[in-house]
């Protein structure tokens, strides 16, 4: 068969084109300027922080990205926002794809992290079986979930990470169910390292990336990712929103090693969460039971604090 009209071939060839000069991993190389993120997108900030930490550590990486805003960010061929080898995986498969890539890296005794960069949909929902299995096998990968609490890419539908009360296109009256506790689920796999990250706390963020880089095996990182488009918030307030989520105790910063030892990174200031809700139009006015929310946040914190006091991380390390 022949083409009826001239087919516009990429002169460099899509297969085995000429080698580009080697690009050292720099701060800008993970996410380059010109990406297609919405203004105020937390995911873009997270990628930049991750890139910076990798550069500081002198590490490079390969990205496996399932269907999500994170792959749309690359832009259209032949340009790409990603300066590291990147592959779009099927929605449910990031952790398995990464397992294959990391297996061959390790068989060949090569360096470079293999990182899954996945949304909450690809993590909490469709990809959870694959992720759980990769965790159980203790695959030598970093799985990074940027949790914007919504299916952003498809226009804002609920996920099992959507918090109660949030309106999405598939929960038009507000979600009635709780949010899954994915960190507890991952910690229950007894993986070497699991931690929560906030872009409002950059030093803590960077330290956790460095910790993850210093460990091998399955590392799970969960970032609260502001999404002005889905949260119906002001792009300029993104960082402030996730800061309030931390200070009010809605999003707790902590680390778990081996599913056994814990560290709380910050005692929330217990600020009023009302402000957090008010600034996002995904939540209806006065629809959130603030007293109940405060109580639930407190309980979660207290429970984790007990674990961190009973099973602190440092002691485990001293034991070794």
């Amino acid at each position: 068969m022949t083409a009826l009209s001239g087919s516009p071939r990429d002169p460099s060839g899509t297969l085995g084109g000429p080698e580009a000069p080697a690009i050292p991993c720099t701060e800008e190389c993970l996410l380059r300027p010109g990406n297609t993120n919405c203004g105020g997108c937390g995911m873009g900030v997270g990628l930049t922080m991750l890139g910076r930490a990798l550069a500081e550590a002198g590490e490079t990486c390969t990205l496996a990205i399932p269907a999500c805003c994170g792959i749309v960010t690359a832009g259209a061929f032949p340009t790409t926002s990603y300066g590291v080898p990147t592959v779009a995986t099927t929605f449910a498969s990031a952790a398995a794809f990464a397992s294959g890539i990391a297996s061959i890296r390790d068989l060949n005794e090569e360096t470079g992290q293999v990182i899954c960069w996945a949304g909450d949909g690809g993590t909490y929902d469709i990809g959870i079986a694959t992720l759980s299995a990769a965790a159980e096998r203790d695959e030598n990968i970093i799985y990074f979930c940027y949790d914007n609490e919504i299916y952003g890419n498809t226009g804002g539908q609920r996920s099992s990470a959507t918090p109660p009360g949030a309106r999405t296109t598939t929960t038009p009256l507000g979600k009635t169910e709780e949010k899954k506790d994915i960190l507890a689920i991952m910690a229950a796999h007894r993986i070497p390292y699991a931690a929560t990250l906030s872009i409002a706390h950059p030093e803590d963020f960077a330290r956790k990336i460095h910790t993850a880089l210093s460990i091998s095996g399955m590392r799970f990182l969960l970032m609260h990712s502001p999404c002005p488009t889905g949260w119906k918030s002001e792009p300029s307030e993104s960082v402030e929103l996730v800061r309030q989520a931390v200070s009010s105790g809605l999003f707790l910063l902590y680390e778990v090693w081996g599913g056994r030892t814990y560290r709380m990174n910050l005692e929330p200031a217990w600020t009023d969460p009302a402000e957090y809700y008010r600034r996002q139009r995904r939540f209806g006015d006065d629809e959130i039971d603030l007293a109940a929310t405060r109580r639930i946040c407190r309980e979660r914190f207290e429970r984790l604090k007990v674990l961190a006091e009973e099973f602190p991380y440092e002691e485990t390390r001293a034991e070794k």
Binding site: P8, T14, E19, A22, A74, A76, Y82, P85
Partner: peptide
């Protein structure tokens, strides 16, 4: 194959002609 020396993005958006 994926190479650190010549990073590419596989499977991103490609317009109809290509």
């Amino acid at each position: 194959r994926m190479r650190h020396e010549s990073p590419t993005t596989l499977g991103g958006l490609v317009w109809p002609d290509v």
